[in-house]
Design a protein around this nucleic acid. Structure first.
Lengths: 143, 143
DNA sequence: GTCATTGCAAAGGATTTGCAGTTCC
DNA sequence: GGAACTGCAAATCCTTTGCAATGAC
C-alpha cells in the first residue's frame, strides 16, 4: 500500500515528531511492505536512497515510532525484532520453516470474548492470535 | 505441579534423550513452575543444587528439550527467550508493565476456526493467543 | 537558538560455537 | 566403546549507549 509524503508528514506532526528524510524513508518503507521486516532489512532498503544512514538511526527511529504508536513489533521466536506498520487490527500466520509472517485480516477473529479465570485486577488491553504452520514451499514432504 | 524423577526418566527415554542429573534438574524446574522462566532464571535455580553447572548446559539442554517437544518457547517482545514446560494447550496473558506471563487455560479458546483468506498451500499446525494488558500491580493510575 | 536527530564508534547482553574431558547407555 | 553431554572460554550477533556534529522547527 502506497503512502504519500504528505500523509507521513501529518502523522509525524500529530505525534510531535520531527520530519527528517531518513525518518520518512524508514516509515514509508515499513508501511509499504507486508513482509514484517527486521531493523536490518529496513536499513538495507533505506540505504539505497540514503547510503550514509547509520544502523543507529534505524534503531532509534523504530523506537521513536513505536513509542508514538505508529508501528507494532511482531515476534517470531526470540529472534531479532520484526516490525509492522499496519495498524489495522489483525493477526499473523507464521511459517515454522522460513519464518515468514503473513497478515491475517479476518475480522471475526477480533471478537473473542475475555477469557475466564483471569487473575483478579488484570486488565486486558488487546490480544493477538499467532497462527503457526508451514507455507507451501516449506511444507514437510509427508504432508 | 510436582513431577517425579521416574516420570522425567520415562519422558527422556521416550525421546531418546540421555538422563543426566543436570538435565533432569533443568526440566524439573521448568515443569514445576508457571513463571515462564528465562534461561538465566533456570541457571540460577539449578545452580543451587549443581553449583558447577554452566550456562551452556542450560542453553544446550533447553534446545534439546525443545527439539524433543518437551517444552515451548514463549515470546515477550524480542527479549530473552522464556520457556514453558506446560504442554497442555493453553494461551497467555502478558503484563506490559512487569512482563509477567500468566497461563490462560480457558478451553473455549482452543476451538477457534481456521481463518479465511489464507495463502494457498499454507497448513496451520496450531495457534496461540497472546492477551496483553496490565496486572493489578502495574495498572496505570488512571485506570 | 534550542533540542531532537543523526552518524560513528564502542560497549553491552544474550546466545552460540569450539573443544577437551566426562558420563551415560 | 561410542556418542551424547558437560563445562569453560571465546566468539558472534543484535541492540544500545556515548558523544559530537547536524538539522528541524
Amino acid at each position: 500500500m502506497n503512502i504519500s509524503s504528505e500523509t507521513i508528514r501529518q502523522r509525524f506532526k500529530d505525534q510531535g515528531l520531527k520530519n527528517t528524510p531518513q525518518r520518512t524513508a524508514i516509515y514509508k518503507a515499513l508501511v509499504e511492505t507486508t513482509s514484517h521486516p527486521t531493523a536490518e532489512d529496513l536499513y538495507q532498503h533505506v540505504s539505497q536512497d540514503y547510503p550514509m544512514i547509520s544502523q543507529n538511526t534505524v534503531y532509534y527511529t523504530l523506537g521513536v515510532l513505536q513509542q508514538a504508536g505508529l508501528l507494532r513489533e511482531v515476534n517470531v521466536g526470540h529472534d531479532r525484532a520484526r516490525y509492522d506498520g499496519n495498524l489495522t487490527p489483525h493477526h499473523h500466520l507464521i511459517c515454522h520453516g522460513c519464518k515468514s509472517i503473513v497478515d491475517v485480516m479476518d475480522k471475526k477473529l477480533n471478537k473473542i470474548s475475555c477469557p475466564s479465570g483471569l487473575p483478579s485486577g488484570f486488565h486486558i488491553t488487546d490480544y493477538q492470535i499467532e497462527f503457526r504452520g508451514y507455507c507451501q514451499a516449506c511444507r514437510p514432504q509427508t504432508a
